[in-house]
Simulated scan of single mutants.
Amino acid sequence: MDPKQNPWPSPPSASGASTDAELVASARAGAASAFEIIMRRNNRLLFRTARGVVPDDAEAQDVVQETYLRAFTSLDSFRREAALSTWLARIAINVALTAQRKRRGLVQMGARAEDDDSAEASPENVMAFRTPDAESPDAMAERSQVRELLQSAVDNLPPIYRCVFILRAVEDMSVEETAYCLGVSDDVVKTRFLRARKMLRETLAEQAKPYLRNTFSFAGARCDAVVNHVFAALRARGLVRSQ
């Protein structure tokens, strides 16, 4: 062997890889770029998926990291029966559920067991609406209020419904993909999604009450314009005296 030749050549780059199969093949060959592409493409999905189960950002981040470690050390088990993102989401759910079981075990040892899963607090950062650059401050404030209402409503869903809602409504997964991730039947996904939406409608209707008084407001310049227009018409018809 030529002494100048590197006996440990660098793994192939994944910069040109586009399909799941190509990325996985590059990752199996040890290409750092493949691992990075996979992570950057799936970070938000896995974070949101984890947040549907675990109670805070820090733990969700731990779940995402553990998910990648498990996935990257067992890439040979990826059979392309589902998209790579879906396969990763399924692993994330399993990791998150394991973390929750451990949490429950610790809670029980502390004599503070909760029997009702709906008592678990699991806030999510799931409604990441993009605000147009030219949006007015008032519109931005209203959008922020709506986002907070939605996040609060999703937060209050029991975990079994919250997971389905995030995967179906937020991540736009199909029924089949969601069922694969959660390890349940298509019918279970459909039922839980319908119930989640029903609960959200009821919750949002209750939470929105304080804001209803300010909806369809008709004040300021628009109010003045109507008043001035009608007064002008009345004066023209001699129905009101000019002051």
Score class of each variant (00 low, 15 high):
190 K>Y: 00
6 N>T: 09
127 M>G: 00
219 A>R: 12
194 L>R: 02
187 D>Q: 10
2 D>M: 06
140 M>L: 06
127 M>R: 00
11 P>A: 15
106 L>Y: 06
24 V>L: 06
162 R>W: 03
139 A>W: 00
170 V>E: 09
37 I>S: 07
44 R>P: 01
32 A>L: 11
40 R>A: 09
171 E>S: 08
98 T>L: 04
241 R>G: 11
192 R>Y: 10
242 S>W: 01
15 S>K: 08
98 T>H: 07
88 L>W: 01
159 P>V: 14
45 L>W: 06
35 F>S: 15
242 S>H: 08
135 E>F: 05
151 Q>N: 07
4 K>A: 15
74 S>G: 12
167 L>F: 03
118 S>K: 04
2 D>T: 12
79 R>G: 13
222 R>I: 06
56 D>E: 15
235 R>E: 13
193 F>D: 14
11 P>Y: 09
44 R>A: 14
209 K>Y: 04
211 Y>K: 09
229 H>C: 09
210 P>C: 13
233 A>L: 12
41 R>P: 00
71 A>W: 01
181 C>G: 05
25 A>T: 15
57 D>G: 08
75 L>A: 06
121 A>Q: 15
65 Q>H: 06
220 G>T: 10
225 A>V: 04
163 C>I: 11
229 H>E: 14
144 S>I: 00
5 Q>A: 15
36 E>N: 10
210 P>A: 14
24 V>I: 14
108 Q>I: 10
232 A>C: 03
135 E>D: 11
140 M>Y: 00
184 V>G: 13
208 A>M: 08
37 I>Y: 00
149 L>P: 02
9 P>R: 05
115 D>Y: 08
233 A>V: 09
2 D>H: 12
162 R>L: 11
166 I>R: 03
228 N>F: 02
163 C>F: 01
85 S>W: 00
137 P>G: 07
60 A>G: 13
157 L>N: 04
201 R>K: 09
128 A>S: 07
145 Q>P: 00
138 D>M: 03
126 V>K: 03
9 P>L: 06
19 T>H: 06
208 A>S: 14
242 S>M: 05
52 G>L: 02
239 L>D: 13
240 V>C: 07
137 P>N: 04
186 D>G: 10
48 R>H: 11
212 L>Y: 07
136 S>T: 15
86 T>S: 12
56 D>I: 07
140 M>I: 14
183 G>C: 11
177 E>G: 03
209 K>G: 07
14 A>V: 08
47 F>T: 12
123 P>V: 05
199 M>E: 12
43 N>D: 15
96 A>Y: 01
113 A>R: 08
126 V>F: 08
15 S>V: 12
188 V>G: 05
207 Q>V: 02
187 D>T: 09
109 M>G: 13
24 V>G: 03
173 M>C: 15
157 L>D: 09
166 I>E: 08
14 A>G: 15
31 A>C: 10
151 Q>Y: 00
